[in-house]
């Protein structure tokens, strides 16, 4: 049996919603403009390719237009072989330029990685078919690899914590109050919102004086990251971990103003998958009503 045949199958309405939301997310996760005058510290793909041409506003505007066309094709499932690589190139190249200014941000990687996984999944599926495998649902493969990529991001973050601290991250977490205070001041110097600073500093001071509570919460966060591969077991686990990780992000946003909006959206789109649960719930209610009517008439 081929690897693809074992995939779960997604209904058309789920796939359409996923496609539209992901296309919108890719567009949002690609800078509207690149207002830089140089690429002082090339990072990632900018090390391999000379991306200075993107600094020309007209060239970049054209690339953005190509991206929009590619995403429309993606939503319509037309010329996917062209749409995915094109969207991937524009998204990765633009964000690589942004990350080549001497400061590496971690907001957009997850979107680019999911886009990369979808591109790889498409061509892997095509290759399997050419190698004699039966025709299968390629789009299911794209969704399945997207879910694995989202999980990989959390899993890697968990492993890195253990590698960097030689397994002692949980014990260091007592000192998170220092990082919370730093996040409070960084957020303050962004917008000069003093009320917000005072609220965040109050939480940092609470963390400083209640180390064991912090260790407990941080431990749950680490367990969630390291246990994230369990989300791939079935739809229920995907939704459960999706909601837990979503709540984890809300907590981080509230306490440290660490907003990972793209992670949250990807969890909603591919892990929580709200349309499926609405339809499943509605069908279950219909069945219950039907069986009740039968019982009444009997």
């Amino acid at each position: 049996m081929s690897a693809i045949k074992r995939m779960r199958e997604y209904a058309l309405y789920e796939r359409v919603v996923m496609r539209i939301l992901f296309a919108w997310l890719v567009l949002t996760a690609t800078p509207a403009r690149l207002s830089f005058y140089e690429i002082p510290a090339p990072n990632g793909i900018a090390r391999l390719l000379n991306l200075h041409f993107l600094l020309d506003p007209q060239v970049y505007a054209f690339c953005r237009m190509l991206l929009v066309v590619a995403l429309v094709l993606y939503v319509l499932r037309l010329m996917i072989w062209l749409a995915l690589p094109l969207a991937l190139f524009v998204n990765v190249a633009a964000n690589a330029v942004t990350n080549s200014q001497g400061a590496i941000q971690h907001a957009y990687q997850i979107v680019s990685l999911v886009l990369l996984a979808q591109t790889a999944a498409h061509f892997y599926g095509v290759w399997l078919r050419r190698a004699g495998e039966a025709r299968t649902l390629l789009e299911d493969q794209l969704i399945w690899w997207s879910q694995q990529t989202i999980v990989a991001v959390y899993f890697v973050a968990g492993i890195t914590k253990l590698i960097v601290t030689k397994g002692l991250w949980i014990f260091q977490a007592r000192m998170i109050s220092v990082s919370m205070a730093k996040a409070a001041y960084q957020s303050f110097y962004d917008r000069l919102d003093r009320a917000d600073l005072e609220q965040m500093l109050a939480m940092a001071n609470f963390a400083a004086t209640h180390g064991w509570i912090v260790v407990l919460i941080a431990g749950c966060g680490l367990a969630l990251e390291l246990g994230s591969p369990l989300a791939l077991l079935n739809r229920g686990m995907a939704a459960l971990f999706g909601c837990a990780l979503f709540a984890f992000h809300l907590g981080l946003d509230h306490t440290m103003r660490l907003s990972f909006i793209f992670n949250q959206w990807l969890l909603i789109i591919y892990m929580i998958n709200i349309p499926y649960w609405i339809v499943t719930g509605a069908r279950a209610m219909d069945r219950n009503k039907g069986s009740n009517r039968l019982e009444m008439s009997a």
Binding site: G44, H106, L113, A157
Partner: peptide, 10 residues
């Protein structure tokens, strides 16, 4: 980029 070992708060 696009890879990262996500070292924030590690």
């Amino acid at each position: 980029y696009p890879f990262s070992n996500f070292p924030m708060y590690s």
